[in-house]
């Protein structure tokens, strides 16, 4: 009798163990399905995020074109400073700083981002210095097209904003990013610029003459690389600044020297 009871007990335990194992197995399966669902949902969300974050294959620095870098900063930097063509600052400023730049040159862009804001705030806005922007086209047809539109913006006295915004959104040199669409987007980021007019005038004889003037000035002064900087006091002759480093401090030291009358 006892052995039958034992056997019954053993079978019941066996059945309970099997049921428990089955339940555990069901739970595991259920969780794996749940994990699968979670993983699929996560992949879908990441894919959407990647698409939204401007990861298109265009080689420009604008991504999906929805976000220009630094448009507000550029607007603020130059706001209220007189501008005439390629010249930024008070026409009566005692010192002139001339920058030769190529819009595709990465060091020019670096200088625009790191040094120009300080120089504009500390020297141009104070009326001590005016700055001339001479654009060169060393780096090919894309540089030429960019220079044309910048000078055309200069006809509306907005060349510095256009160039600065271009530098802040500069792409890989010679990669084909300087499309008409890119040039238009930069223009649309410049507060107050009539973009249609600028694009139309970019191939005008007036703009062409400005580019030729920059090229001949560069030739006369022996400019072989960009960015290159020259200074002069009043209507004196331009002298090249030899910079140990491309920084606002280095250029500022030269400007201070001239302002102190040592030049």
């Amino acid at each position: 009798m006892s052995s039958r009871a034992d056997e019954k007990q053993r079978r019941r335990e066996e059945r309970e163990r099997r049921e428990q194992q089955q339940a555990a197995s069901d739970t595991r399966k259920q969780r794996l399905w749940l994990l699968g669902g979670v993983a699929v949902a996560a992949i879908a969300v990441v894919a959407v995020l990647a698409l939204v974050s401007g990861g298109d294959d265009s080689p420009d620095g604008l991504g999906d074109g929805s976000s220009l870098n630094a448009a507000a900063e550029v607007d603020e930097l130059f706001a209220g400073i007189p501008q005439d063509g390629i010249t930024l600052g008070d026409p009566d400023a005692p010192i002139t700083l001339v920058e030769f730049a190529d819009l595709q040159c990465p060091f020019c862009a670096q200088f625009a981002r790191d040094a120009i804001p300080t120089l504009v705030r500390d020297y141009v806005r104070t009326g001590d210095v005016k700055m001339d922007l001479r654009l060169l086209t060393f780096l090919g047809p894309e540089s030429m097209r960019a220079a044309q539109v910048t000078y055309a913006a200069g006809l509306q006295d907005l060349a510095w904003q256009y160039a600065d915004l271009f530098f802040n959104n500069q792409g890989q040199e010679g990669s084909g990013y300087v499309t008409e669409e890119f040039l238009r987007e930069i223009g649309e980021g410049v507060d107050g610029l009539d973009v249609d007019a600028a694009l139309e005038q970019s191939t005008s004889a007036e703009v062409d003459a400005l580019i030729k003037r920059s090229e001949s000035a560069a030739q006369t002064l022996g400019v072989s690389s960009t960015p290159s900087f020259f200074v002069r006091r009043g209507e004196g002759t331009l002298e090249e600044i030899q910079l140990g480093e491309l920084s606002a401090e280095a250029v500022g030291a030269e400007l201070d020297r001239l302002l102190d009358g040592d030049g």
Partner: peptide, 17 residues
């Protein structure tokens, strides 16, 4: 637990990207 995993997997996937 599923919500934690979902948020963390999205975070890890996007961080990886």
């Amino acid at each position: 637990r599923a919500a934690t995993a979902l948020v963390a997997l999205i975070g890890a996937g996007y961080s990886g990207y």
